[in-house]
Design a protein around this nucleic acid. Structure first.
Lengths: 214, 214
DNA sequence: CGCTACAGAACGAGCGTTCATTCACTTATA
DNA sequence: TATAAGTGAATGAACGCTCGTTCTGTAGCG
């Protein structure tokens, strides 16, 4: 059954969705017309409606696609982080998040479109139960990581999620919000200092870094 | 010179801008029509053009107005924070930011509209030179604050801006992005743990909090 | 032949903006 | 103080155009 024809159809949808993504994320949902998407993808208006019943369904298809893609990227970034709270590992995590952010700015644009033009109805579930998710997926590994030094007592999954979020925010401000060097120093320096704060706190004078056997 | 009439005009513009803000931030710029704004503000569509030459100028008026309002709120939140890096003061800061975020969600919606539908052209300057600004406005006070204990050596203005941003992000995710308890614990508990990490780091086992005379 | 991806004309509604006009009020003149 | 002239806020119909969607027709593969 799945022959040349089905492949062709998939390629057509691919083209349409790529064009739609590009246009939506630059002009917003209501600022984008089906005619623009048709032209940009090289198909006719009428044909768009053969593949997607309405403009909104096309938008929803994009949301699902990019959400799946993004959660895969996120899982990949986490899967080979073992000793999560060691400065070196946190630097690796920051680097991975940096790449994700810089190569997927459109994902956030899509999310902002949803927040403003759809009352966050498509993305809201992403943020619900993050705490439980982090605990479930990472809990054991993080508890183990926290036993590699004199852990201070905060909830490991909370600490990790907080760092994770801070890194995303940092790179988003640097790129999408055009706040280059918004912390006053270059990116790698900023990340180093942030990690130092997370691991040692800023009231750490007169002592050594204590991770890994302090 | 004339009083009554100018007051009336101001009140009219106030009504128009309030209606525009409400509609723009719920439907986006392109998703909002001048007719909707006219209806919501109680004026005729023609009259809107007596006050604002184009739809875009009306949008820009909103941006300027809410940017001014927001920067005033920000300045207020900072002005009576003295010993900025003490846990108690950080808790106060978090509380102030919480109020700002929860009462001004539309400000961020406006910013997201700008990011998506105008390529961030109206808000970009907000994020440029944050580092220098923080250093200039807060530098001295923060350096002084950092001398109240065994400061660990990171740049005070960077540390403070980072915390500031983390608090904003935290409450934004909690509210606008519908991520209630996204760190897995109630807000005040999350803030307490975040502050503990910032001040002591998570590798702080076997020691006391060292601020204020450590 | 039957099916469907595809094209594009057609439809009615709605868009941002302009227009002629009315009207309340301020200012200038006597 | 009475009146004429001027200002600009306010109205809503109208304009040219674009919108999302539907409809009709064609081309090419299984």
């Amino acid at each position: 059954m799945p022959t040349t024809k089905n492949k062709e159809v998939d390629r057509s949808r691919e083209k349409i969705e790529a064009a739609a993504m590009k246009t939506f994320t630059r002009q917003g949902y209501h600022g984008t017309s089906m005619r623009e998407i048709a032209k940009a993808s090289g198909f006719s208006i009428g044909n768009l409606y053969n593949h997607y019943p309405t403009k909104e369904k096309l938008f929803e298809a994009l949301v699902e696609k990019y959400e799946a893609r993004f959660s895969e990227l996120g899982a990949n970034a986490l899967k080979d982080i073992d000793d999560a709270f060691q400065p070196a590992q946190l630097e690796r995590l920051a680097g991975a998040i940096r790449e994700i952010v810089y190569h997927n700015l459109d994902y956030w644009r899509l999310m902002y479109i949803d927040v403003v033009e759809f009352g966050n109805q498509h993305f809201a579930h992403t943020f619900r139960g993050w705490g439980e998710q982090a605990e479930r997926v990472l809990g054991d590994r993080l508890r183990h990581a926290s036993e590699q030094g004199p852990w201070g007592g905060v909830k490991p999954s909370l600490a990790f999620t907080m760092i994770y979020l801070q890194f995303f925010t940092y790179f988003l401000v640097e790129s999408l919000f055009k706040g280059k060097q918004h912390l006053g120093v270059p990116e790698d320096e900023a990340i180093k200092q942030m990690i130092r704060i997370f691991t040692e706190g800023f009231w750490s004078g007169n002592q050594q870094g204590k991770a890994k056997g302090g």
